[in-house]
């Protein structure tokens, strides 16, 4: 065998790993997919049924009586917490990227950027620890009651402000976890843009900020969109931090932004122990179905972002 082919075979393991994840999860959860049907995504009850009685037959498959598997509340929790995180992360990420690219002296830029982008290196569970120990008491006792009282004219800001575990807390911490991804990519794109564009704009009398805002930022639009989609993918799949601060709601749709939630990723961790109590095994397979749904969503989101970025790379190479 030629060396090149040997390397190709070994390298293919990377691609096969992703295929294996999708295929094995699909095969393992297939009985659950057939039993739960399309209602899996629409129903709002995750109920293992009566574990003390005998299994009954449903669609040719043994299940516990009363068992029902629906993950609407997980989809709502996942999408809403990600939405809050991304809505907050894009302006903060863009602002910080502009500041780092243009306001910080070039000699210090590398290390100051490194300092804030270090947030991306901190493990998820450490964010969870920080959220649990420091952020939740602060938000739950001080900020949320204040917001519920003074900002109640904004939809979903009124009502019971809860204990601090919930949708907004998850969104805020997720935002901090994904902002560095946007900032780092965009800062690079701003710094490396053609100097001629910048000089032309300045020569026309635009100020430095106008140049940034009207010339450089539009030039980096595709990079911003690509990195925002990647950041969205990261927020959709975050597990440990969300698990520790979201309140792990079950079968509950959020009423306001302080409501406890669960996300698909955190639910898999919090429910496996109880799913193992189901003697028919359908609960564990339904959890695999949750993992499969999450996996497919993240593959689609990340695939789209990568194709956008690849396309941009080829496009800008042609322009240059």
């Amino acid at each position: 065998m030629k060396f090149r082919h040997l390397i190709a075979v070994l390298a293919s393991v990377v691609a096969l790993a992703l295929l294996a994840i999708v295929v094995f999860l699909a095969v393992y959860s297939w009985p659950a997919i057939r039993m739960n049907g399309a209602g899996f995504l629409r129903r709002n009850t995750w109920n293992l049924g009566n574990l003390y009685s005998d299994p009954i037959l449903r669609h040719g498959r043994e299940v516990m009586p009363g068992a029902s598997y629906g993950i609407l509340f997980l989809i709502a929790g996942t999408l809403l917490s990600t939405l809050i995180a991304v809505i907050l992360a894009i302006p903060v990420g863009v602002g910080a990227a502009i500041f780092l690219a243009e306001a910080v002296p070039a000699g210090m830029r590398s290390w100051i950027s490194f300092f804030v982008e270090m947030l991306a290196a901190i493990p998820s569970v450490v964010f969870g620890l920080w959220g649990y120990v420091v952020v939740i008491p602060f938000l739950g006792h001080h900020l949320y009651p204040w917001m519920a009282h003074h900002l109640k004219f904004i939809p979903f800001f009124a009502g019971h402000s809860g204990s601090g575990y919930g949708l907004l807390t998850a969104g805020l911490v997720l935002c901090l976890m994904i902002v560095p991804l946007i900032t780092a990519t965009l800062r690079d794109a701003l710094v490396t843009q053609l100097a001629t564009q910048r000089d032309a704009s300045l020569a026309l009398g635009a100020s430095r900020f106008e140049t940034l805002w009207s010339v450089l930022l539009p030039g980096a639009r595709r990079v911003l969109i690509g990195s925002s989609i990647l950041a969205t993918g990261r927020a959709l799949g975050e597990t440990m931090a969300v698990l520790m601060i979201s309140g792990n709601a079950l079968n509950y749709l959020p009423r306001n932004i302080y409501s406890p939630i669960s996300t698909m990723a955190s639910f898999i961790v919090s429910q496996l122990d109880s799913a193992l109590q189901d003697p028919t095994g359908i609960a564990v397979r339904s959890l695999a179905e949750v993992a499969l749904v999450l996996c497919v969503i993240s593959v689609v989101v990340n695939g789209a972002a990568r194709l956008l970025i690849y396309y941009h790379g080829r496009w800008s190479a042609r322009m240059a």
Partner: peptide, 13 residues
């Protein structure tokens, strides 16, 4: 794309 697959999915796999 594998970078973006949530780590809990890999754990459950």
């Amino acid at each position: 794309v594998l970078v973006g697959v949530p780590s809990i999915v890999i754990g459950y796999f």
